[in-house]
């Protein structure tokens, strides 16, 4: 289990290498990479909006560690890795990386989806969209994200 919250971009290949280095028991990795979409409402011709991510240092890492621990209870995982960026990001930038490693693909796929679903509804990050000189707009939480996380409630783990 490993969590990083950072302003810098992450190197996907290097992160995968770090998870798998020196071991031969991992049969598959599921990798989710989240990107910044251009969501800001703006007139045609305006430059794309940027996004600034605020978080609660300390609680963020703690929450993600708890989510990783929960994933490890539910599935037979061999490694997990979460990297989440904060600060100012531009459309197209990578924002989040989730890696789940297991002996077999089913647990890796399910755990990866669980990790991002729970992260979205529990980890204390907030997105502020800004276009040009406008003061910006805080992104609203989405009911669909709550629904995605809720479907894991009481869900039995997939067989390894």
């Amino acid at each position: 289990m490993s969590v990083s919250v950072q302003e810098a971009d992450f190197d996907v290949a290097a992160e995968i290498q770090a998870v798998t280095a020196g071991r031969c028991d991992i049969g598959g990795l599921a990798v989710f990479i989240g990107l910044v979409r251009d969501l800001a409402e703006r007139a045609d011709g305006d430059p794309p909006g940027s996004m600034t991510l605020e978080h609660y240092p300390g609680m963020t890492e703690r929450q993600i560690e708890e989510i990783e621990a929960e994933a490890n209870v539910r599935w037979p995982l061999l490694a997990t890795r979460v990297v989440h960026r904060v600060g100012r990001l531009e459309p197209g930038d990578r924002i989040v990386l989730v890696i789940a490693a297991s002996a077999h693909r089913a647990a890796a796929f399910d755990a990866c989806q669980f990790l991002i679903d729970w992260l979205k509804t529990r980890a204390p990050f907030w997105k502020l969209e800004q276009a040009g000189d406008a003061p910006g707009r805080w992104v609203d939480a989405r009911a669909s994200d709550e629904d995605a996380a809720a479907r894991w409630q009481g869900s039995p783990p997939t067989a390894g």
């Binding site: 609660y56 989440h84 991002i116 992260l119 979205k120 204390p124 907030w126 805080w138 994200d145």
Partner: peptide, 10 residues
Amino acid sequence: VAFFPPVTGG
């Protein structure tokens, strides 16, 4: 004690 809106990360 921290107060905050619903989270929107990921």
